[in-house]
C-alpha cells in the first residue's frame, strides 16, 4: 500500500512539476503617428523622421527575445482642414528612406470630419522596405532613422492653397520568440 500511495503522490507531483524548455512565439504591435502640417500653395514636400531606436524602446521587448519577422500591419491616413485651406483633396506619393510606399494616394479634405482611413495604393516594395529597415536596425543597429516623406499637390486642381494637417499612422508588428521553462503538460 505504501508503494501505491507513493506512486500516486509521485504521479501527482510529476504532473504538477515536470518542466521543459520550450520556445513560444509572441507578437507585439506598435502604432506610430507621423504629423505633417502643410501650409503651401501647390506642390508640397514634407518629411517626418522616425528614430528606429525610439521604436525599439517603445516596443520594450524582453532582453532575451529572439527577433523574428517584422511586419508593417497597416498604414492609415487622416487629413485635417485648417484655416484658409482651398483644396478639397490632395494627391500624394509617400516615401520611406526614398523608397515609394504609396502612390497617387488621394485623400479628401472634409472640414466636417477628421478620421483615419486605410491607405489605398500601397506599393509592395516600399512597404517591405520599411520592414526591412526595421529588421536591419534590430540586426545591425542601422539605419538609425527612417525618413517618411510626402510629396503631393491639391487635387483635382493642382496649385491651390493647401493648409492642412496630414497624419499618417504606421502599425508595426514584431514577431519574436522566447525560451521558457514550462510544465510538460
Amino acid at each position: 500500500m505504501k508503494t501505491m500511495l507513493f506512486s500516486v503522490m509521485l504521479l501527482a507531483l510529476l504532473m504538477l512539476g515536470a518542466c521543459e524548455t520550450r520556445t513560444f512565439e509572441y507578437v507585439t504591435t506598435l502604432s506610430r503617428t507621423l504629423d505633417y502640417t502643410v501650409d503651401h500653395e501647390g506642390a508640397f514636400n514634407q518629411t517626418s523622421v522616425v528614430t528606429t531606436s525610439d521604436l525599439n524602446d517603445e516596443m520594450d521587448l524582453p532582453e532575451d527575445a529572439i527577433i523574428g519577422e517584422i511586419y508593417v500591419e497597416a498604414l492609415a491616413v487622416a487629413v485635417e482642414n485648417l484655416s484658409n485651406n482651398q483644396a478639397t483633396a490632395v494627391i500624394m506619393d509617400g516615401y520611406a528612406n526614398d523608397r515609394m510606399f504609396v502612390n497617387d494616394l488621394v485623400s479628401p479634405i472634409d472640414p466636417a470630419t477628421y478620421e483615419f482611413t486605410a491607405m489605398a495604393n500601397l506599393v509592395s516594395a516600399g512597404v517591405k522596405a520599411i520592414s526591412d529597415d526595421l529588421a536591419a536596425y534590430f540586426m545591425t543597429g542601422s539605419p538609425p532613422t527612417i525618413a517618411f516623406r510626402l510629396e503631393g499637390d491639391s487635387h483635382p486642381t493642382p496649385g491651390e492653397t493647401i493648409h492642412i494637417r496630414i497624419t499618417i499612422e504606421v502599425t508595426l508588428t514584431v514577431q519574436y520568440a522566447l525560451e521558457t521553462e514550462f510544465p510538460d503538460i
Binding site: 513560444f24 512565439e25 509572441y26 507578437v27 504591435t29 519577422e69 511586419y71 508593417v72 500591419e73 497597416a74 498604414l75 510606399f101 504609396v102 500601397l122 506599393v123 509592395s124 516594395a125 512597404v127 517591405k128 520592414s131 508588428t173 514577431q175
Partner: peptide, 9 residues
C-alpha cells in the same frame, strides 16, 4: 501591399 496581420500563438 505586403502588409501582414499576425495572430499570436
Amino acid at each position: 501591399g505586403q502588409t501582414y496581420y499576425t495572430f499570436p500563438g
